[in-house]
Design a binder for these strands. Structure first.
Length: 428
RNA sequence: GGAGAGAUGGCUGAGUGGCCGAAAGCGCUCGCCUCGAAAGCGAGUAGGCGGGUAGCCCCGCCUCGUGGGUUCGAAUCCCACUCUCUCCGCCA
């Protein structure tokens, strides 16, 4: 949520953001301005009446105390009270509508974010490693995984449906190894605290990180409960501090969390239908930062390096792309994607997304900090980034490390987590 | 699943209809004292919203888990919900 005062003072800035992102309605801004004015008008009147009520109430109390008869005052009180009730009745729908509209207005892009309508305007800012030259026709990971008997899409379809996977044997172990490898890296070398949050969250948490109310169709809800399956660990982890006022010396907070992630992938029928790239359930190690406003952009750059370290250790070629305004999400001001080289796609594929939200989520989730004992609370800045997506990492490992006989070499960094196993061959 | 208890400021905890945004204690901040510290003494110490003046000051309104109700008036009475705790049962 953006600051109502910003809309009041610079509505054109907000309209421009809506245009650049292609998310939201410009006329919502006008309605916000109208409702805000209306609200303040009603509020002033009702507050004066309440002040009157408080004074009358005191007088009645005093009169009764001294044995007097407050009848006339009680009559006036009745009138004042019913008028207050009436105005409250007018005020409430105004405030509710205003609040809802604010939840639908997107965050303002950073001035340095490249402007453009779609991904063709994204900007590559870094590149690491060389895509390998295969001396044989490389296979896609779904073929490799199936013939190695570590990925089983057919049985997953039987027990659940399409876009699910069963991992067998070395495949299952590989998932576990990657989770541990990534968490260890971020804890030991990047100073993150390990968190294992719930995989179900309530509606308020989803609103806090801005998945709701706008993107309801993207998530899975548990029938009969106020529970959503987490689409990313960002939701439970960022919301850990919902409603809190933190001390300045607690910041920055760095959290690393593994969760399974659940996404409906509504509207992507027919895209990436094979393999691990687009699943309803996938594993991910997520990095979340809660920081002071003045540090958030340098924290974003650091986040990109920390996520990239995972790929460098695994020897996977990747590039870093800065998202243009049209590719920025609803809540982000600035975002970098890490894209790993995927031989079957013959291109780089997103494997991590690192974003700054500034105070957008903090305002929704009411996460603040105090610079000193005496100072007013301010909103923190929040960031997050994948560190990184496990399923896509497995796809990239299988494809990039495949051999002509269909076996797959396990990169050095992962072997300690695989009981020393250095290669997956059929039967493992 | 059954039975019961509870939810008040950073913490403990008082408050059963008006004088209560709220006693007391602890903690914390500042000052005095001291060579310094402790102790002691004094002062201060929630958040939000609206308005004024304009910078960090004044005025008002709201908030005692959440939402509704009773009442001229609710932290206090009634209802619903959420959460926490205890006991029994069940269970990974």
């Amino acid at each position: 949520m953006i600051d109502l005062r910003l809309i009041r003072d610079s509505p054109e800035l907000v309209r421009e953001a809506i245009r650049k992102k292609g998310i939201g309605e410009e006329h919502d801004v006008d309605e916000v301005l109208r409702l805000d004015a209306k609200r303040r008008e009603l509020l002033q009147e009702v507050q004066e009446l309440r002040a009157r009520r408080n004074r009358l109430s005191q007088e009645i109390g005093r009169l009764k105390e001294s044995g007097g008869s407050p009848n006339e005052l009680v009559v006036e009180m009745r009138e004042v009270s019913s008028r207050i009730k009436e105005l409250d009745g007018q005020l409430r729908p105004v405030e509710e509508r205003l609040q809802t509209l604010l939840l639908y207005i997107p965050n303002i892009p950073h001035p340095d974010a490249p402007v453009g309508p779609d991904e063709t305007h994204n900007v590559e800012v870094d590149r690491w490693g060389e895509p390998r030259n295969f001396e044989f026709p490389p296979k896609p990971h779904w073929e490799l995984g199936t013939s190695l008997r570590i990925l089983d899409f057919e049985r997953a379809a039987k027990v659940t449906g399409t876009r699910f996977t069963v991992f067998w044997n070395a495949g299952a172990r590989l998932v576990r190894a990657l989770i541990s490898f990534m968490i260890d890296l971020h804890v030991r070398e990047h100073g993150y605290a390990e968190v294992l949050p719930p995989f179900l969250v309530n509606e308020q948490a989803m609103v806090g990180t801005a998945q709701l109310p706008r993107f309801r169709e993207d998530s899975f809800k548990v029938e009969g409960y106020d529970f959503y399956l987490v689409p990313t660990a960002e939701v439970p982890v960022t919301n850990l501090h919902r409603g809190e006022i933190l001390e300045a010396d607690q910041l920055p907070l760095y959290y690393v969390a593994y969760t399974a992630c659940f996404r409906s992938e509504a509207g992507s029928y027919g895209r990436d239908t094979r393999g691990l790239i687009r699943q309803h359930q996938f594993d991910k190690v997520e990095l979340v930062k809660v920081v002071t406003p003045e540090t958030s952009y340098q924290e974003l750059e650091k986040l990109v390096r920390e996520a990239g370290e995972v790929l460098r250790r695994l020897g996977l070629p990747y590039r870093v792309v800065e998202m243009c305004t049209g590719d920025l999400g609803f809540a982000q001001t600035r975002k970098y994607d890490l894209e790993v080289w995927m031989p079957s796609y013959q291109r780089y594929v997103e494997i991590s997304s690192c974003s700054n939200f500034e105070d957008f989520q903090a305002r929704r989730a009411n996460i603040r900090f105090r610079r000193s004992r005496k100072s007013r609370p301010e909103y923190v800045h929040t960031l997050n980034g994948s560190g990184v997506a496990i399923g896509r990492t497995i796809a990239a490992l299988l494809e990039n490390y495949q051999c002509s006989d269909g076996s797959v070499v396990i990169p050095e960094a992962l072997r300690p987590y695989m009981q020393g196993m250095d290669r997956i061959t059929p039967g493992d």
